[in-house]
Amino acid sequence: MSKKQQLIDAIADMQEDEAMLVAQQMLDDGEEPQAILDACKDAMAVVGQRYEKGEYFLPELVIAGDMLTAIGEKIKPLLQVQTAGAAKQGTVVIGTVKGDIHDIGKDIVGFMLDVNGFEVVDLGVDVPASDFVAKIHEVKPQVVGLSGFLTLAFDQMKATVDAISAAGLRDQVKIMIGGAIMDDTVRNYIGADAYGSDATAAVRLAQGWTGGK
């Protein structure tokens, strides 16, 4: 089995120590840093698929994310120029709305969109409506994802959608909302295009809007 395949399997099977070892061996063998990053990307796609199938849950996404960060830190200094990645499926701006600092759900959605080929711009938590508007101007996403865990997010999401409309950007983006207490009544109140009950639903929505698979 090639070293690349070994790395993919180690990451996908949650073998942290082995993944770090193989990545180091590949570097020592003079492998191109980009090839190692490509292997990580392939591995993350497998992790994403297993998550969608219900084989993996948050523990595995946490560990996969940590492996990716650790290998990335090893490799980043060696990358001479940032090579342009493959063409992206589309751009999604995500963030947790103002007043709410919960990030776990948002981070899973970001991870799953990323492994499914989307360019993800994550604005973080406690994001004011004006920051969403400014970022939409800047990166021209096809999709905006608003996250919120608390009931206060209902009104903050509504204010964010209203601000996007007031800026004349509403018809340029599709807006999806997510969070444990979201449902269709709330989506309608907020004026969003759809709500997703989990990260897999978010990927399906974004794919549907960008003509993806």
Partner: peptide, 13 residues
Amino acid sequence: VPNGLLLAGTPDD
């Protein structure tokens, strides 16, 4: 009873 309904719905809902 959904909290979204309590915020965005009507008493009849």
